[in-house]
Design a protein around this nucleic acid. Structure first.
Length: 419
RNA sequence: GUGGGUGUAGCUCAAAUGGUUAGAGUGCCGGGUUGUGGCCCCGGAGGCUGAGGGUUCAAGUCCCUUCACUCACCCCA
């Protein structure tokens, strides 16, 4: 019979990879908590309408990448393609904005988008999502980015580049959008097919085009920064100043456009050279009116999402941590000895000692081989003779010396050594 | 959704122009020591060569179809 395989674009994460993920999550918890964030857990499924309104009707995500289905043929539900909309939904549903003026939340979990899988891109992928709701002070933007860079630093990541930009606000962005559309219409004939399409759908995307010719044309285009209003410019400068204060290296990427409709003013990405085409390991930005657009008060927010798979790919596989190896391996020969091993190993485990043993009754030699492979520090050898005389051989695997010890005092002896 | 690449042992890979029983390393299991690991030596298990069809005296190898994986485009974390 054929085995059933995982669905395309869905992956298993196996040990020891899971250890690395655990390490990333632990680091995130510690750093975020220090910065005053609390964890929130949100459902994997939401009403489709939430994402249509939150992410934007004309985005690729909503147009063609969502896992949407009718629940019992009645209500349209969707597997979340991102977390921000859900976090804000929960924020509003539980009126967290009335509890305190600043709400700092993070959540870690899988997202779902039905795209063609490739390196660093899967249909189920994990994100670390962080949001600050309430303040729109530029210090908040800077603080969030600061924390983020600190987090990446704590993970030991090198050769990352932080790019920031301002997308302007409701005041200045439409003017710019109009100017860019007008400019593109004038050069339409020379643009690539994709870019001609983008004029109608997402003109800012043209900045990202990889076609050389388009790049040339675009370099002549009006620049967003020239259209940004005084307030937005001031906000951006303030953010820059704070980053400089903490000596955070960054580059201003005026061509950076984010894929979701809700971003305003500050946006940012962190990129790497070592992941192929999917070079962004995280992206985020401010969203001044998303809360309002989802039916809440006009509260500003800012957040980012880190791609776990992409992040994990940058962290070297960990050397087998000696602390993960058993402290003791119990080698037992003969049924009575195996029973003794069963009892002792589980007793010691309950006292916090990491113990491995073998119930198979294999030769001492093969059990020793296994103990060696597991890098166990000590081996307790119990054979027929030892059982009848109520003793055992306690072998130090590093020094290859061994001594006899009585089984009665074994637990205490081990505990003493393990301490 | 559109292109390109790759499918042989658990893993990494071999098998010249089609030609006998598809090999190696590694891993796994066992032995070399009456009950003692690493190094070394020996042995064993493990493959419908992704699947289906075709050409041929003969197909892992050539052709077609299909599936999977993968990289890239699009887009994004």
């Amino acid at each position: 019979m054929e085995i059933i395989t995982a669905v395309k674009g869905f992956k298993d994460i196996l040990p020891p990879e899971t250890d690395k993920w655990r390490h990333i999550e632990n680091t995130a918890y510690n750093v975020f908590r220090t910065f005053g964030f609390s964890e929130i857990c949100i459902p994997l499924i939401e009403k489709t309408e939430l994402f249509r309104r939150g992410i934007g009707e004309s985005t690729d995500i909503v147009e063609k990448e969502m896992y949407t289905f009718l629940d019992r043929g009645e209500e349209s539900l969707t597997l979340r393609p991102e977390a921000t909309a859900s976090v804000i939904r929960a924020y509003l549903e539980h009126t967290l904005h009335a509890v305190e003026s600043v709400t700092r939340l993070f959540t870690i979990g899988p997202m779902f988008r039905r795209e063609r899988p490739q390196k660093g891109r899967y249909r189920q992928f994990y994100q670390i999502d962080v949001e600050i709701l309430g303040p729109d002070d530029p210090r908040t933007d800077a603080e969030l980015i600061l924390m983020l860079m600190h987090f990446l630093d704590r993970l030991g990541l090198k050769n990352l580049t932080l790019e920031i930009n301002s997308l302007g606000c409701d005041e200045c962005r439409p003017t710019f959008r109009e100017a860019i559309v007008q400019f593109l219409r004038g050069t339409e004939k020379e643009l690539c097919e994709d870019c001609r399409r983008r004029i109608g759908t997402n003109p800012l995307r043209v900045f990202d085009c990889k076609v050389e010719k388009c790049g040339e044309i675009i370099s002549q285009a009006p620049r967003l920064m020239d259209f940004v209003c005084v307030d937005c410019r001031e906000h951006f400068t303030q953010v820059e100043d704070r980053l400089t204060l903490f000596a955070i290296p960054y580059t201003v990427n005026a061509k950076m456009v984010r894929g979701l409709d809700y971003y305003t003013r500050t946006t940012f990405e962190v990129k790497t050279e070592s992941l192929g085409a999917q070079n962004a390991i995280l992206g985020g930005g401010r969203y001044d009116h998303l809360v309002r657009d989802l039916g809440g008060p006009d509260i500003s927010g800012i957040g980012f999402a880190i791609g776990m798979e992409r992040l994990a790919a940058l962290i070297p596989d960990k050397e087998k941590n000696p602390a993960d190896s058993p402290f003791l391996f119990i080698a037992a020969i003969g049924d009575k000895a195996v029973d003794k091993a069963f009892f002792l190993s589980n007793r010691l485990r309950m006292r916090g000692i990491r113990v491995e043993t073998d119930y198979s009754g294999r030769s001492l030699k093969s059990q020793m081989k296994r103990a060696d492979k597991l890098k166990s520090s000590f081996v307790l050898i119990i054979g027929e003779r030892e059982v009848s005389e109520n003793r055992a051989l306690f072998r130090n695997m590093h020094t290859s010396s061994q001594e006899e010890i009585g089984l009665d005092k074994l637990e205490e002896t081990i505990m003493k050594i393990a301490r």
